[in-house]
Amino acid sequence: MDTDFAKRRRRDLIVAACLAVIAALVPLFVKDVYVQNIMVLTLMYAALSQSWNILSGYCGQISLGHALYFGLGAYTTTLLFTKFGVLPWFGMLGGGLISALIAMALGYPCFRLRGHYFVIATIVIAEIALLLIQNWDWAGAALGIDIPVRGDSWLKFQFTRSKLPYFYFALGLACVAWFVTWWLEDSKWGFWWRAVKDNPDAAESLGVVVFNSKMGAAAVSAFLTAVGGSFYAQFVSYIDPESVMGFQFSLLMALPAVVGGIGTLWGPMLGAVILIPLTELTRSFIGGSGRGVDLIVYGTLIVLISLARPQGLIGLFSPKRKEAVR
């Protein structure tokens, strides 16, 4: 079984490398800005959902408050840049580190909670942060912040003429998130997390330090999510509390993993590739004429998938994969 596992991991890595190369070549053929925009969003959600999946999927601690870390990343970068002129790259790193620290500080009391008490705590904490930012005048309050355009440059991570640099960054981010997950899957942490998810009491009795492994998952997950937030702020060059820290965003981040397959390596990617283009297309083709149709399509899809394929759509590709991991 061990060799099977090693073989599968090698195959996963090769497939991922091929997919990344193919994805990198796509913009050579697809010049349409609208389509490129959808591709950037798809890659961003893939990366975000992959990060969410580390804490919620692998470690089993369902967070519906990840918008907190996304918003922290977006706000740290934006505030440092607009108020102090700090380059977004440092803001990205800083936002990631701050988020990881905050995730651990919050995890300290929250990881004692189980089940729905934990889920609601994550929602409530993100909601408190949202309300605080909405009332914080220096940070733009409810109106948000416009990021001033200072011309195209990699140094300031701003591009007005072409979306391609954003595309390649998002692709890089998705690759990093995937690779981190791939790497962690086979590490001591990965095994601990799956044990904690399946049965925390049994894991504890076998010597897994449940609390520390949850903290580790939270820190990694929050760091990557915050980097995604920094990227998003630069990409749309305008942020406001509701759009980057609202509850809706926590959900949007989780759904690709839910649709593709929670706690799987490929699930978040697959889910994002299906969900994001579908949402964007329904929004632009039907959404305009009859408001709410995009929500109806989206919601119906989620209900049907979670009822018909609770293990996610990834199971369609290799039904035996789950057993192989265990």
Partner: peptide, 21 residues
């Protein structure tokens, strides 16, 4: 599989549909 998630997201999906309708 994923019993907890399925409960959460099937009713969440319903909520989104109802809001859309």
């Amino acid at each position: 599989a994923n019993a907890g998630m399925v409960q959460i997201f099937s009713t969440f999906g319903l909520a989104i549909v109802m809001r859309g309708l």
